[in-house]
């Protein structure tokens, strides 16, 4: 009995706990603050631990964990009485900033001057749907298919959220870089 229990937690540590950084990063982007993010990760890990026997070995453990995290966030942490307003269509935001910078900084070296806090803030300002897609794809390196599975949406939806989320993020960072004089 004790042996079985030890094997249980060993497997969990080896397969699930290696994804703690991913969980924390996604939690931080969802909640917007470190204290809530830590609570959300702890809650997620405990749920996953208790459900570990249900986890199908050999399937995508990281996607499984992020799905639990996201559902926990929706059920327990999103305290607002209603879902955030659905994203307004604003096509200006979706235009690439490349045209504006191609003469002065085509390689985008201004990105390097932007401080971490500003990167965090810009990501945080994205609408939630876009933010989650961008973080899972561009920071955590998940595939479109994995993200679609986690969010329960078609791959086409992931593509368009990524497209628009990236463009908006670029624009926000570009505007900041202009203000700071990083673009000549």
């Amino acid at each position: 009995m004790a042996q079985k229990k030890a094997a249980h937690s060993e497997g969990f540590e080896r397969e699930a706990l290696v994804h703690l950084d991913t969980l924390y990063n996604v939690a931080l982007r969802l909640t917007g603050n470190a204290a809530d993010a830590e609570d959300l990760v702890q809650e997620t890990v405990l749920k996953a631990y208790r459900a570990w026997d249900m986890y199908e070995r050999g399937t995508n453990c990281r996607a499984w964990l992020v799905t639990i995290l996201r559902n926990t966030f929706i059920n327990q942490f999103r305290k607002q009485s209603k879902k955030p307003a659905s994203v307004q269509f604003d096509s200006v935001e979706d235009v690439s900033i490349f045209e504006s910078v191609q003469d002065r900084d085509p390689a985008g070296s201004f990105f390097r001057h932007i401080v971490d806090e500003e990167v965090t803030r810009a990501i945080q300002e994205l609408p939630e749907d876009f933010r989650v897609a961008v973080v899972l794809s561009d920071v955590e390196g998940l595939s479109y298919g994995e993200i679609a599975e986690i969010l329960g949406v078609p791959v086409g939806t992931v593509k368009s959220r990524l497209f628009r989320g990236r463009r908006r993020l670029q624009r926000r960072l570009y505007e900041y870089a202009l203000e700071m004089g990083y673009i000549g």
């Binding site: 950084d21 924390y24 931080l28 910078v101 961008v134 973080v135 561009d138």
Partner: peptide, 16 residues
């Protein structure tokens, strides 16, 4: 340019 942007995000967007 887009590749540089995505590289930048991968490097700077993570929080352990």
């Amino acid at each position: 340019f887009e590749k540089a942007f995505l590289r930048f995000l991968a490097q700077r967007g993570a929080n352990g």
